[in-house]
Simulated assay, not measured.
Amino acid sequence: MKALFHEGKAGMEGLTYGDIAEVNPGPGEVRVKLKTAGMNHRDLFVLHRHNPTDPALIVGSDGAGVIDAVGEDVSGVEVGTEVIINPGLGWQNVSDAPPEGFEIVGLPFHGTFAEQIIIPAENAVAKPEHLTWEEAGVLSLAALTAYRALVTRGQVKPGMNVFIPGIGGGVATFLLQFAIAAGAHVYVTSRSEEKRAKALQLGAKAAIDSNEDWTQALEGVKMDLVIESVGAATMNQSMKQLRRGGTIVTFGSSTGDLVELNLREFFYGQYNLLGSTMGSAEEYKAMLDFISQHKIKPVMDKMYPLDQFADAFKRLEEAKQLGKIGFYVE
Rank of each mutant, 00 (worst) to 15 (best):
D96R: 09
F178Y: 13
F163P: 11
E72W: 02
M12Y: 13
L47N: 08
H185S: 13
G60T: 08
S253W: 10
V74R: 07
D257S: 15
A286D: 13
A286F: 00
E193I: 10
L144Y: 09
K35I: 02
E282Q: 15
K314M: 09
V74Y: 04
S238V: 02
P305N: 14
T234S: 12
L225Y: 01
V70K: 05
A121V: 05
Q293G: 00
I164C: 08
F251P: 00
T247A: 10
E115Y: 03
F266M: 05
G220W: 09
E330L: 09
E330T: 10
P25R: 01
L144P: 11
L200A: 12
E78M: 13
Q308Y: 11
D68P: 01
A319Y: 10
K295H: 12
L261C: 02
F251A: 00
A37K: 07
F163Y: 14
T36V: 08
S229K: 08
M303Q: 13
T277E: 03
G71F: 02
T277Y: 10
I164V: 15
T53F: 03
A286L: 08
A181E: 08
D54F: 03
A206V: 00
L176E: 02
F174V: 01
G137A: 07
T255Q: 09
L15W: 11
I85L: 14
F5H: 07
D307Q: 14
P25V: 00
D257P: 04
K35F: 03
T152I: 07
F163R: 09
F251W: 07
Q321G: 07
P25W: 00
A184E: 02
E122W: 00
L306K: 07
I325V: 11
A197H: 11
L258V: 15
G323W: 11
N272I: 10
K295R: 15
L47G: 09
H110Y: 10
V188A: 12
T152S: 07
N272W: 03
G159Q: 05
A56M: 04
T36Y: 14
A310S: 12
T53Q: 13
G154L: 11
N272K: 12
D62L: 04
G166W: 00
V32E: 08
A207R: 04
E129M: 13
E193F: 03
H294G: 01
H185W: 03
L263W: 12
A146N: 12
P128V: 06
M303D: 05
S75K: 14
L322T: 15
V249F: 09
L200K: 15
P25G: 00
Q116N: 15
G11E: 06
V329C: 05
